[in-house]
Design a protein around this nucleic acid. Structure first.
Lengths: 196, 196, 196, 196
DNA sequence: TATGAATGAGCATTCATTCAT
DNA sequence: CATGAATGAATGCTCATTCAT
């Protein structure tokens, strides 16, 4: 008759879910899907392992949700980038700067696409990861094309430039995880790929 | 019952071991340490899973041996590179060319250092991987320093340039695994990082 | 906060309890003790699973209560039967007719004694079920003895005739659950067991 | 090179599999699908729980195999029955006699079809059980029809007579499990259903 | 050596039960 | 009284590892 109100429940669920996704991103990012234990993630999120299953019915769907959350984070970053004033080149500088800064705080963020390779994942997971990767590549490639049209970026095939840029950022994410104390290269080194 | 000469035995043993390491590199490279099953590796090597334990007493030592084999491959490549005629820059071009070519055929090769991160591995494994990574970074950094002394490479801190270069190659290895059909960027894009 | 009169509370409580027992009989009857989930029963009864524990402190006591309710239903049926006019045989016809009719509407009713066997249940549950079964067997046997004394029923050992009759009714209950659309055999076929 | 021969392996597997199925029949028969633990079955079969999964990949497939083995046993009994000399009635006497005798030794045998009801089982299991039940009903009904043609069996609808007979045998199987010491009714009581 | 049956520790998942609101 | 979030013991299942042959 007088239980918690529906909104209260929603609020609790939302907070917990957020905490869970944050924990999952960290643990999955560091260990990969197979090595990450639900108990690890639950502990990191400060809840019992049983509760994880109130929010996601299986490890796989938790992983998928984690990837999707990363995807949303990426979308926000892209939107912010597009809203920046200045030339295409200046926007790319902003985007890469944010990515490198993100690596410093949470290298797991961009690692989701790295951990589950071809045979290691169920088809469902593979699709989710592939979609994320394609979105990142597509967004970056579009910006590179703009820069090329503006004459600010070298004229090679944009797909290859894109892959080189994204590869470096992901490689740096790995480096960050393995050697958290090593200095990341400055932005202009990273962006030199795109200069003639 | 099954009489053979001692040499034949030795030869069989050696072939088997080599096949095992090759299989292990492929499977560990694709799936990572935790997701790779001994049975997968044995099947890929064309032997029963029981036999794996005649060569390596545990999964961890098989993994360590796999990393060490990759390390030896790297050492050979470095030796070949040092033996190349020409300027330091020309040698770096050779080295990177070989690495990119290697990715085409066997992207797993350079992935060994990617899969086992901080918390995911036993201390022993972490050390093996760290040593491999340090060796790669050390060798590349030495060559970059030479190029800088020769005035062929931009003057930034060599450690950061090294990390950027290695990160990109590893990122490309991941890209190769996930999208085997995508074109890799040409050598001059990769090496542009090192140019002023 | 939620003021109601004491009687209203009592009434609500009683209705809820009745709904719960009905739901429990259906779900326990269909799935058995182990496979029935408290959440299923709660859903069937239209309440939250937490509320179930306000009425019965454990799954086992809910099950026991369900069996006891079935037992009471049986007692009522036996009393009605005894109150019937006519010969012992006519009363048996009435009893079996009611049982068969009951199967049509709610085959779960007589299944309680079927689902929990020797090793599957805690000693407490086993006792409850055994008592129910003994009561049914005892009542039916008494009526068969009467019929035998009246010369209306064949002269075999009454315990065996009883078991045959009860076995058939329970078997038909199972049949009803598995094939709800199959026709049940007519009463005279069932009762033929008792005829010479 | 000189391991166990393929036949030896086959033989071992066959024996183990048989022991496993026997144990599974007993445990599933007594407790039902949900309450039966793989560990129980393994212990009853004298093996570790892990080994169970070498023979059947999941609990469900072990259950299905158990039902299928019971089905084969039934087919053998039917074939033996058909090979009996005498009238249709005499063959039915033989069949029911064997079933009742079977109950004495292993009441679990005929219980497979009892334990998993409508909502408690996955669709796959339900199908397997339904098929078994249909086969039993079909075989018995065919024999009852023969007896009716020979004028040895009462003229009611054969489907209903069949259900009554099978229901009684299953009911007796339950009785046997619950009260292993109670006397089973004699054959002529059971078969009285089919007499006018 | 080589095989695959066998074991059991470890992890994903379920669900009875508790409890704050 | 009523709700559903939260807990953790129990159980299905996996897979590294051992071992008889």
């Amino acid at each position: 008759m007088c239980p918690r109100s529906a909104e209260q429940f929603e609020q609790i669920k939302d907070e917990r879910r957020r905490a869970l996704l944050r924990a999952a991103r960290v643990v999955f990012g560091r260990k990969g899907f197979a090595a990450a234990k639900i108990a690890d993630i639950a502990a990191q999120a400060g809840m019992s392992h049983g509760l994880v299953y109130h929010y996601y019915p299986e490890k796989e769907s938790l992983f998928a949700a984690t990837v999707e959350a990363s995807e949303e984070g990426w979308d926000v970053l892209v939107a912010l980038t597009r809203a920046q004033p200045g030339t295409p080149w200046e926007r790319l500088v902003y985007l890469c700067g944010q990515m490198i800064a993100g690596l410093r705080e949470e290298p797991e963020h961009l690692l989701m696409t790295v951990h589950v390779h071809a045979e290691g994942a169920s088809p469902g997971l593979r699709d989710v990861l592939r979609r994320f990767r394609q979105r990142v590549l597509g967004d970056v490639e579009a910006m590179i094309r703009e820069g090329q049209r503006a004459g600010e970026i070298t004229q090679g095939p944009p797909a290859e430039l894109t892959r080189a840029l994204v590869a470096m950022v992901q490689g740096l994410a790995i480096n960050r995880l393995v050697e958290p104390d090593a200095a990341l290269p400055p932005l202009d080194v990273v962006l030199r790929i795109l200069r003639s």
